[in-house]
Design a binder for these strands. Structure first.
Lengths: 218, 218
DNA sequence: GTATGCTTGTGAAGAGTTTCACAAGGTGTC
DNA sequence: GACACCTTGTGAAACTCTTCACAAGCATAC
């Protein structure tokens, strides 16, 4: 009975969390209506999403901000630190690493790998850059559960295969390639070119011509 | 009659394009079945997606690689260069800019803005970093259509408002905040923390316990 | 303690997306 | 030119996700 939660629901839970965190301290309670407005969805959707996991509100009153935060964090598995490996210390990899927001949110990059001999041996804020040869060994030893793949597209599938065989079951993939993984392993793709292409499509689509200038802002 | 194309269809078009480009030169024709396999979907889905825009294949034969590339590029608006402004020259902004894959795909960052006085006046590969005060003027002058927002969350909505009032109708948003825009303007969000949270959810969800160790790889 | 007002939680309806299955229409062979 | 083969394009069915609408339930006032 592996209740199937849709990707969109999970995505919205993240939004709820962001919205709630911005409100901590404000008033201690809020309605699905308010939460929906702040998270950019509808009240019914908020209630339905939450209903998959339990009953967290009080009828007539709404949800207690901090309580709901705790519940959502529990649901999403954000109550413990996740140990993450970064593969690929190029431009994207380094930007990610320096970005630092991950650590603040419980995703701790504890190992870095790169195939470039010029990079191997370097140290980023206390974490040594290692050869990909060591992935299996290090991931096992460090009990790493999530892998971030920021290698060239051609190397992505091999990299992921190695990570998976080293026990990783979650992959954040920045390579612009669809990755194949065995069942039980999850891949999330981040592909900025694709997002830009989606924009280009919206700006190009005939509907724009059809609706004409008047439609904007109606 | 603004035929409504779903977000997932647009996303898949990008995947088809990537898959097709990898094949240029191979054999000159391929079936929906083959394309589906390379893009990670089903043959029926490929045909349905394409059918929204026309009939590009030949029955009994399949699609001509180069021809289909041209069609999809036309559909998505990738046949001309898009002029892009980058707002926020911090870590994410610079990583994006240096990444360079955008330019290769027809997205040309021709203006950069940052509020940090220490950065204003700096030059990145020939493009000067300007004060946000100049957004309206520069965007109008340079006929910029797409804005990339890589500013802190609190500044995101204001930044977008400025961009929109300067004529931008497509926004790529890296700030972890849901942005409100008038109708006719499209926002694409890139939020890496959210993707990691989705992974955490998958790795945490009770179903994992329910299915047990045996399920992986079945 | 009862009445009033408000908001949740949820079955059911509605909308949208994916999959199915097959007629239509090409190619190549003999 | 007819036949066999193959793959597209597409209505219809199946499935999934969102929206609706309302009974159930709690808080507060009197």
């Amino acid at each position: 009975m592996p209740r199937k939660i849709s990707e969109s629901t999970v995505r919205r839970l993240s939004h709820y969390l962001r919205a709630l965190e911005r409100r901590v301290g404000d008033s201690s309670t809020l309605s699905s209506e308010q939460l929906a407005r702040e998270a950019g969805t509808t009240a019914a959707q908020v209630r339905k999403d939450l209903s998959f996991f339990g009953s967290f509100g009080k009828r007539g009153l709404g949800y207690t901000t901090q309580e709901l935060i705790d519940h959502i964090q529990g649901i999403m598995g954000l109550t413990h630190e996740w140990r993450v490996a970064l593969v690929g210390a190029g431009r994207i990899g380094s930007a990610l690493y320096e970005y630092g927001d991950f650590r603040a949110r419980g995703f701790d990059i504890v190992a870095i790998f790169d195939a470039d001999p010029g990079k191997i041996g370097g140290v980023w804020e206390g974490v040594e850059i290692r050869s990909p040869d060591q992935i299996t060994e290090v991931l096992r030893r460090e009990a790493i559960e999530i892998g971030v793949v920021a290698v060239p597209a051609d190397a992505a599938q091999d990299t992921v295969d190695t990570l998976v065989s080293a026990g990783v079951r979650g992959i954040l993939n920045f390579a612009p390639r669809r990755i194949r993984v065995p069942e039980g392993v999850t891949v999330q793709d981040v592909n900025m070119v694709m997002e830009l292409e989606a924009l280009a499509f919206q700006l190009t689509d005939p509907r724009v011509e059809t609706l004409g200038r008047g439609a904007t802002g109606t």
